[in-house]
């Protein structure tokens, strides 16, 4: 196949057509390691439109970050291999784009924020340098203009005394401020899609709320699509439009946020929701999903969740459930989604 560069094929911003902004379609990612093939992502599909917030939920190791890294094109290949699937951005499959084309998309049109801002920022350069680099490299701006832009951005993400602090190094900031710097850097070029991979996990609770608020606000302002990867169901309810729940490298449920809170359609989503501590259940024992996440080197047959599933029937052990469409916006990868849905309504 002839490799194409991004400018040839990607329509300018806004030229959307019917396609959503970003579509992940049946994505597979494996890691070829000494111990064997780790199937980290086994058929993930989700989509994102402009101005929309998609929350991606799931236990540790379920493949949330690997999917995000595949979208960004920052997986180390090898050991990573993408044997199947498409990631379409404005209808163009990013996976078949040339490296040059991808570099133009990265940072410029799809940006990413990482969990631990301290290790994600380079310790030997000032924050101003790191933010203004976006303008210098992508826009050919001069050092001075770049720095001016950096100060503006730091103001925008509400870092106090931005002008004085622009020449400080990452280690001189608090955790929350560092994450703000990360955010400033990621939104520098007005990306159309922002992927935030557990942006608040490393922070304490009050700071978490502020960062989430900031992200939501920035998103509203610029109409970005936001993919929010998180463990924290509490956060999701307030900011997300829709949710994709992942288990063992697969999407088990896609749903608008209110629907899933009202009535989950997959036993795993139900387990996740039941394990949130709730005020009205005070004093009761917290629910926890029984069993352990599967070993990705040796996946269970049939539905990967069957060893832990209270709804299990015989065919769950042998048949891999497809994503059953429940409604136009909802789907569940459970053979017995009707029962689950009814059960959680009742």
């Amino acid at each position: 196949m002839k490799k194409r560069s991004a400018t040839d094929v990607l329509p300018a911003e806004g030229g959307l057509g019917n396609e959503p902004l970003l579509t992940v379609d049946n994505l597979h990612v494996e890691f070829h390691t000494r111990a064997g093939i780790v199937r980290a992502v086994n058929g993930v599909s989700y989509s994102l439109s402009a101005g929309e917030t998609l929350a991606v939920l799931g236990e540790s190791g379920s493949g949330k970050s690997v999917t995000a890294q595949a979208i960004m094109g920052i997986l180390d290949m090898p050991p990573a291999v993408i044997p199947k699937g498409e990631i379409r951005f404005h209808g163009t499959n990013l996976l078949t784009l040339s490296e040059e084309g991808r570099t133009q998309v990265r940072g410029e049109r799809i940006a990413m924020i990482f969990q631990d801002a301290l290790s994600a920022l380079n310790p030997v350069f000032t924050v101003g340098w790191q933010i203004s680099e976006m303008f210098r490299v992508h826009r050919g701006m001069s050092k001075r203009d770049g720095m001016k832009k950096a100060v503006e951005l730091m103001d925008k993400v509400r870092i106090p005394a931005a002008r004085q602090r622009v020449n400080d190094y990452p280690h001189q900031f608090s955790g929350g401020m560092r994450q703000r710097i990360m955010i400033a850097m990621s939104i520098a070029l007005d990306p159309e899609v922002l992927i935030a991979d557990e942006p608040t996990t490393a922070l304490d609770v009050t700071v978490q709320a502020q960062i989430m608020e900031l992200l939501a606000e920035l998103q509203r302002e610029s109409n970005m699509g936001l993919i929010l990867i998180t463990h924290d169901l509490g956060v999701v309810a307030d900011v997300a439009d829709k949710i994709s729940v992942m288990y063992a490298g697969r999407i088990v449920e896609n749903a608008p946020v209110h629907d899933i809170y009202k009535a989950p359609a997959h036993p795993y989503s139900k387990g996740l929701l039941d394990s949130i501590p709730r005020v009205d259940h005070k004093g009761q024992e917290l629910y926890a999903i029984k069993g352990l996440p599967p070993n990705l080197l040796d996946m269970p047959t049939g539905c990967a969740f069957h060893p832990r599933c209270p709804y299990r029937q015989d065919n769950c052990v042998t048949d891999v459930p497809p994503l059953y469409e429940i409604s136009g916006v909802r789907s569940s990868a459970c053979h017995y989604w009707r029962e689950v849905l009814d059960g959680s309504r009742g």
């Binding site: 960004m72 920052i74 570099t103 133009q104 998309v105 990265r106 940072g107 410029e108 940006a111 990413m112 990482f114 631990d116 290790s119 994600a120 920022l121 380079n122 310790p123 680099e133 976006m134 490299v137 992508h138 850097m185």
Partner: peptide
């Protein structure tokens, strides 16, 4: 292998 290298790649740096 450091995280900030991954960041630099994600920023679209050549």
């Amino acid at each position: 292998r450091a995280d900030y290298i991954r960041t630099a790649v994600a920023k679209g740096m050549p």
